[in-house]
Nucleic acid binder design. Sequence first.
DNA 1: ATACTGATGGCCT
DNA 2: GGCCATCAGTATA
Length: 197
Amino acid sequence: MSSPQNRLARSFFERYTPDVARDLLGKLIVRRIDGVSLVGRIVETEAYRGFRDPASHAFKGKTSRNSVMFSRGGLAYVYFIYGSSFCLNATSEQEGKPGAVLIRALEPLSGIEEMMKNRGVEDAQELTNGPGKLTRALMIDSTLNGEDLVTSKRLYILNQQTPLSVGTSARIGVSKAKERHWRFYVQGNSFVSKRNA
DNA sequence: ATACTGATGGCCT
DNA sequence: GGCCATCAGTATA
């Protein structure tokens, strides 16, 4: 009854990364801080794999920065980029097989006032429509790197139906492997970071 | 509307 | 020293 609601299970994450990325669309990210829930619907993701994906952090092997990508699926991989932003990923595939899904945009659902405070903006459209923006809105930083999304009380993902119309494109901000259309987004959703990309 | 650019700092070679 | 899975400006139309 008070079982873990409809939280995503380990088996959801331990699959082929692009499938996990597509299926994460529509799911709800929950960030709990001091009893307050900040919730957003995932509307944009990108898949990154391992040794065969030149755009992936894991391409050149395991380092202290990317080590979480090499562990089992369902963990938070949080890294710092461009001297200013954190990016949130959910790890995929099984132990030893690197993979992660970058969460690129959310549609804010609850705790919007709190998110506005965290971001310092009033415009709801601008709250979580980018990977660095949503981590700031949800107060996600490197202290959550390695957090287990399957069991955590601070950060987890609830199941929801996958949207019917999903668009794909090359990944944003990467020059390599343009032929892999591993960016997935909810078509027509106004919180997607970049339209027509 | 699109295009470019500076800020910023940790990580890797 | 160079490279970023970015963001917020500024400029131009």
